[in-house]
Computed example of a mutant assay.
Amino acid sequence: MKIEIDCNPSTADSDVLSQGIMNFNKLMIQDLEPMEAEKRFYVFARDDDGEVCGGIRATCYWNTLHIELLWLAEKARGGGAGRALIHRAEEYAREHDCANALVETTSWQAKPFYEKNGYKHMATLEGRPKGQASHYLSKTLA
């Protein structure tokens, strides 16, 4: 067996991996939501001029809201925009049958913000990135 690293694999090769894990998952749990059902979405905060001043990029799959990123411009912070973004993302997730939410944040980012919004700390990975930590939080949406 030859083991290799490929930073630019063919679509056919990468599809073999994706299809392989999807087939395995379906074999193990017949009614598991397929990855094709994944719903990527964005929630935007706009200022009075209609300019984006913050937002969330997220995905719903396997009955879980995955918050990939949340950002707010300095001028939009402290007035409830972050809380409103989270609320709207969670509302959308519930509409799409998500019962859980999951987020990763780093030591210099928003752990206290997520905790104030009902997220519970699950784990910390120290040294990610070097000299810092990544925190993993979850919330029950049901």
Rank of each mutant, 00 (worst) to 15 (best):
L141K: 12
A89C: 03
D6I: 13
F44K: 15
M122A: 11
E74V: 02
E126Q: 13
M122W: 05
K139A: 07
F24P: 04
N25R: 13
L141P: 09
A12L: 10
E90F: 00
W71R: 05
V103E: 01
C7M: 10
S14M: 07
T124Y: 11
E68R: 07
C53G: 09
G131R: 05
T59I: 15
Q19V: 04
A101V: 01
H96W: 02
E38M: 13
W71N: 03
A133P: 10
E74Q: 11
I86N: 04
I21F: 11
K120I: 14
Y61W: 12
K120P: 02
L125D: 06
I67P: 09
S138D: 09
C7R: 08
D13R: 04
V43A: 09
T11I: 13
W108Q: 03
N25Q: 09
I56S: 01
T140V: 14
A99F: 11
E4L: 06
N23R: 13
S14F: 15
S107T: 07
D6M: 07
W71D: 01
F44L: 15
A76C: 05
N8I: 03
A37H: 13
L70C: 06
P34L: 04
L70G: 01
A101F: 02
L65I: 06
Q30W: 08
L102W: 15
N117I: 06
S10I: 07
L69H: 08
E33Y: 04
M22I: 09
A142Q: 08
R83V: 01
G79Q: 12
Q109I: 00
F44R: 11
Q19L: 09
R94Q: 05
L85V: 01
M35V: 15
E51K: 13
A89V: 04
F113I: 10
A99G: 07
R128Y: 15
I5Y: 13
E126H: 14
G79V: 02
K120V: 14
E95R: 03
H121M: 11
A73E: 14
H66S: 03
N8F: 01
A58I: 04
I56W: 00
F44A: 15
M22R: 11
E104C: 03
A142E: 12
G55T: 10
L70P: 03
N63I: 00
A84P: 00
W108F: 15
E33P: 15
N23G: 12
I56N: 01
M122G: 00
L102Q: 08
A93S: 05
P9D: 03
R94S: 03
D97A: 13
A133Y: 08
L27D: 13
K120F: 05
Y61Q: 14
W108C: 00
S14I: 09
S134W: 03
A110R: 04
L69N: 12
R57W: 04
C53L: 06
E115K: 10
H135W: 10
A142Y: 14
L69A: 12
M35D: 14
Y42S: 14
A37P: 11
E4A: 02
R57D: 13
A133K: 14
A89F: 01
L17G: 07
E51V: 11
S138V: 06
E36S: 15
L32H: 11
I5H: 08
S138I: 07
E68C: 02
M122P: 00
L137G: 02
L85I: 00
Q109W: 04
Y114M: 05
C7I: 08
G80M: 05
D6P: 05
K130I: 14
T64S: 15
D48M: 12
Q19N: 13
S138K: 14
L17T: 08
G50L: 02
G118C: 06
